[in-house]
Computed example of a mutant assay.
Amino acid sequence: MTDTAPITQDVLTIPRKLPDGPTNLVGLTRDALRETLIAHGTPEKQAKMRVNQIWQWIYQWGVRDFHAMTNLSKAYRAELDEAFTIAVPEIVDKQVSADGTRKYLVRIAGGHEVETVYIPEEDRGTLCISSQVGCTLTCSFCHTGTQKLVRNLTAGEIVGQVMLARDDLGEWPQPGVGSGTDGPRLLSNIVLMGMGEPLYNFDNVRDAMKITMDGEGIALSRRRITLSTSGVVPQIAKTAEEIGCMLAVSFHATTDEVRDKLVPINKKWNIETLLDALRAYPKASNSERITFEYVMLKDINDSDEDARRLVQLIKGIPAKINLIPFNEWPGAPHARSDWLRIERFADIIYKAGYASPIRTPRGEDIMAACGQLKSATERERKSRKEIEADAGL
């Protein structure tokens, strides 16, 4: 299947003009930061050194005050303070689940809000970040999909979620100290599985993740970052080439008939087209398997036949299948599969030679679990009947 149309024609996905004022350095790539400093009077011969210095202060040590950047001259610090700002989104509300999960309601430019979730585990701490305000995909099992798309997040608003979470966790090292000096990180992994479709905001997601992976800053390995897509086929190979992180696919069905209803983007790029792109994925290997996310919906996609079809469909793709018990939300048109049914499904996949972990629901008591995110400022409320009609159920 070929498609020459733009990835999306929805004008609402174009970032709105942000308020006038000092230029925010958060979200600028190294090249963009260098050009910005030169444009404001930094001599070209000094620009590379200045970028390295400012980069470390912002991304390695979390410093937001130019006057605290003590390896810069006082005069240069004053110039920076006049022309620039170091700003991250604002946490307007934080909820902590009984299981330790933290959900942040985050305000970005224009007064819009998104949600970011931190999930602590025994051997890691995972931050689930958003890439758009709302979403265009209207997946029937996803609460975010009932919220209309407002705009893409900027690179600064994406990496800013990582920075504000490190603020809240108290995880910035002291100036002069390396990121890994104090032992295991509280925030060790990132998943782009929050609000929005990351591949509909590719450039900003790419720049934010490049900043996050930079060894002189936050310094997270590309293998500790997972990008989840619903199947924007033309951008999949580009993800490997320009970002290089791990890939997850929101799959959820084994026939086009069912996936058309659950994940409507399937009508544009169907299962066969998506799987062809995944088989050609440049980074797919036994050490970098593609994760197939599969939400378990009672009597919809959870039969033994579905499990066997799934195994046949992904044959030849280095993969694992992440089974996700459906996390209910008010007005949801689906129910969670029975636990024994989920275990039976997992067993069929496991016996076929694929890892099939069942994701433990986290943060359900604060609506922070997978598929439950929806910003508080979104006032439109749809009835169950409207949601089912949108999904074609």
Rank of each mutant, 00 (worst) to 15 (best):
A284L: 02
D93Q: 12
L80M: 04
L137W: 15
A109T: 10
P198W: 01
A47T: 06
F326L: 07
L192C: 10
K210W: 02
A47L: 06
L274N: 04
Q312L: 07
E388L: 06
C139M: 03
A87D: 13
E288T: 14
R279E: 07
A98F: 12
L340Q: 11
D65A: 04
R222F: 04
R359A: 07
E157M: 08
E380G: 15
I314N: 01
G244K: 14
A208S: 05
S230G: 10
R379C: 13
M195L: 15
T229H: 01
K382H: 12
A352W: 00
I86N: 03
T239D: 08
T360D: 11
D256E: 12
A352G: 12
V263D: 03
T4C: 13
W269P: 02
T239A: 07
E272D: 13
I38V: 10
D10G: 05
L169M: 08
L262C: 03
K320M: 08
Y350L: 09
K48A: 07
S375I: 10
A248V: 01
E122W: 09
A98V: 06
P330H: 05
P264A: 11
R362K: 09
T8K: 01
R362G: 10
G215R: 12
G196H: 00
A376Y: 15
A219T: 02
I38E: 13
V92N: 04
L220Y: 02
F66H: 10
K210G: 15
I38T: 14
D20K: 12
A352L: 09
C370R: 08
S356P: 03
K298H: 07
P234L: 13
G176E: 13
R224D: 03
G100H: 14
M209Q: 05
A155E: 03
G111P: 05
